[in-house]
């Protein structure tokens, strides 16, 4: 049997040197403000040269649904749910002060006046910088969201194991 002697300190140092800087973000929320925070962190990290993956689950999936997308699920219950649950990065409501859409409209106006990128622009920048988008298949099924109603930038359709395999290597893992 071949015995290998490793110096723990050097091995650790090597491991740290070769470990890529990785960021994973779980976006569960479909709120405008939370999605903005997620995409600002993602784009910032990507600009710093870090590998970034965002997992979209539950309401977070709304951010990567096509504008005005409804559902093409087979059963009427999920189709109805998909119709009620409006999709599209442009349509995300504020978590507070939404006021039936008025508050959110005002916020978007103020953002535009201040040349602040909104969720659609930030998302485009993220894709441009190589941020990977992964859609959670379980919640897609649950909410009647089908692949054809999601934007083209989605890199993978996967579940919790894929997320954990990525998060395990991540130095920053966020749940938003």
């Amino acid at each position: 049997m071949l015995a290998t002697h490793v110096e723990p300190a050097t091995t650790l140092a090597q491991l740290e040197a070769t470990k890529p800087e990785k960021v994973t973000i779980v976006l569960l929320s479909g709120d405008l403000d939370r999605a903005m925070a997620a995409f600002i962190i993602a784009t910032g990290a990507a600009a710093m040269g870090m590998q970034v993956t965002i997992f979209f689950t539950f309401w977070g999936l709304n951010a990567i649904r096509k504008k005005g997308a409804t559902s093409s699920a087979k059963d009427w219950l999920r189709r109805m749910f998909g119709a009620l649950n409006k999709g599209g990065a442009e349509a995300l409501p504020l978590s507070r002060f939404h006021f039936g859409g008025l508050g959110t409209k005002v916020m978007q106006m103020v953002m535009k006046q201040n040349r602040m990128p909104g969720v659609p622009e930030l998302m485009e920048t993220a894709l441009d910088l190589g941020v990977r988008f992964i859609a959670c298949t379980t919640t897609m099924g649950l909410m009647g969201i089908t692949k054809d109603t999601l934007i083209d930038g989605v890199d993978q359709f996967a579940g919790v194991t894929t997320y954990l395999a990525e998060a395990k290597q991540g130095s920053v893992n966020l749940f938003i």
Binding site: I40, T43, G44, R115, T125, L129
Partner: peptide, 13 residues
Amino acid sequence: LGYFCPMPIILTS
């Protein structure tokens, strides 16, 4: 000028 975080850093990169 006129851009907020994270745009200056992204444009720099």
